[in-house]
Simulated assay, not measured.
Amino acid sequence: MPTRADPFGPWFSLGLDMWMLGAEASSVIALRTLKLAGGGAAARAEAERMVSEKFAAAMTLSQQAMLGQLGTSIPDIGAKAVASYRRKVRANRKRLSRA
């Protein structure tokens, strides 16, 4: 239900956050592709980091969900999960942009 703080409701906000996650992830994919295309030790390290980060993020969110740490409503759970992934994607974009 829309509120004064969130006039479009939690589902609209969640959808917008998911859209932003997709846009941010696209830039990280492009930066990682360039790094991997360069080959060598840096590409190998990036590939290993990419896989381990994805596994760790999935395990962390699974654990938080099982312990009820993500919230009590579906929009809250989705918003916290997306926020967690967005933080990680932003950190990767910043790191990969410096290189």
Results as ranks from 00 to 15, higher is better:
A5R: 08
P7F: 04
F8Q: 15
F8I: 00
G9V: 01
G9F: 01
M18Q: 12
W19K: 12
W19L: 15
W19P: 00
L21R: 03
G22D: 11
A23G: 03
E24T: 00
A25G: 07
A25I: 00
S26F: 02
V28P: 04
V28A: 13
V28L: 10
I29Q: 13
L31H: 01
L34E: 15
K35E: 08
K35A: 09
L36D: 06
L36R: 07
L36P: 04
G38S: 07
A41I: 01
A42R: 10
A43N: 02
R44F: 00
A45M: 02
A45Q: 09
A45P: 02
A47G: 13
E48I: 02
E53G: 01
K54Q: 14
K54N: 10
K54S: 07
K54Y: 02
F55M: 12
F55Q: 15
A57E: 09
A57Q: 10
A58Y: 04
A58Q: 13
A58P: 05
A58T: 04
M59A: 15
T60S: 11
L61M: 11
L61I: 07
S62V: 00
S62E: 13
Q63D: 13
Q64R: 12
A65L: 10
M66D: 12
M66H: 08
L67Y: 08
L67M: 12
G68W: 07
L70D: 05
L70N: 05
T72D: 13
T72M: 13
I77N: 09
A79I: 06
A81W: 03
S84V: 00
R87K: 14
V89C: 11
A91N: 08
N92D: 15
R93L: 14
K94C: 08
R95T: 09
R98I: 06
R98C: 11
A99W: 13
A99D: 15
A99Y: 11
